[in-house]
Amino acid sequence: MMDFINFYLVPGITLGAIYALGAVGVSMIFGILRFAHFAHGDLMTVGAYFGLSAVWLLGIPALAAIPIAVALTCLVALFADRAFYKPLRQLPTIYTVIASFGVALIFRSVVQLVWGTESQVYSVGFQKPIVLFDSLRIATRHIQIILATAAITLGLHWFLHHTQMGKTMRAVSDDPALASVAGLDPEKTIRWTWIIGAGLAAIAGVFVGLDTDVHTMMGWNLLLPMFAAALLGGIGKPLGAIAGGLIIGIAEEICTYPFFGESLISPSYKSAIAFVIMLLILIFRPRGLFKGRLL
């Protein structure tokens, strides 16, 4: 039982927290800009590498590098929106989807040019896990990631329900036509969407590096579970996306637990879980668990 918690549940929650932070942006961009942002994973990669540079240049720990990574990643996202997505805003959104597919490639190749393709880590050395109740062993990094994600979730909830911009974003996500009738400024809302989406993607990227390592394909490989999490939570429901991310992260880890002496699925097929969940959602509940929009 303790093995289950220590080696499957806690890592599952950690992985889920990373998916969740990425999926918030996917869900918000889908809800407000109305397109599936294929460059979101690579935006995460960009954030992780900004964090890496901050760690290298300033000699600070990875957690302290987060604000720098967030700020720079937000600028990158705002620039990408201005240069690549805004010119296509009046067209059917599928053109923006295609553009974002290309932006993903641009992000990745720039990262490969600047930082190279070797895997990197923020810090070397073994961290002693924290032991609770004699047998619950949790790695420090897992505690950090889980607690930070919980705090971000609370902050996000407060932002969406108690600030003018948060309510504006939910209104635009509900009904963009009515939002413009109410005189809300769509471009300002879009800017804030990028700032939050990119900021959380950067944090998620640094968390990936903290948990394992940083490499140039990391974000692209996380795109599928992030999409699945956003769909599971319901499009335009950022808090739903967090729940979706956690469910998928936990499901991926638990499915490899040897419940009946043998794991449910081979660990090499872990990332198939997200896809299966995505298909089930599309077939049975296209609006997701929390009644999001159907685009």
Partner: peptide, 26 residues
Amino acid sequence: SAVPQSHNVFPTLTVEENLDVGTFAA
């Protein structure tokens, strides 16, 4: 101000939040 014929409230916002949205632009 204008009120469209249909789809004229934000369905997932509360009544109070719908009223609040009316103050954002002015």
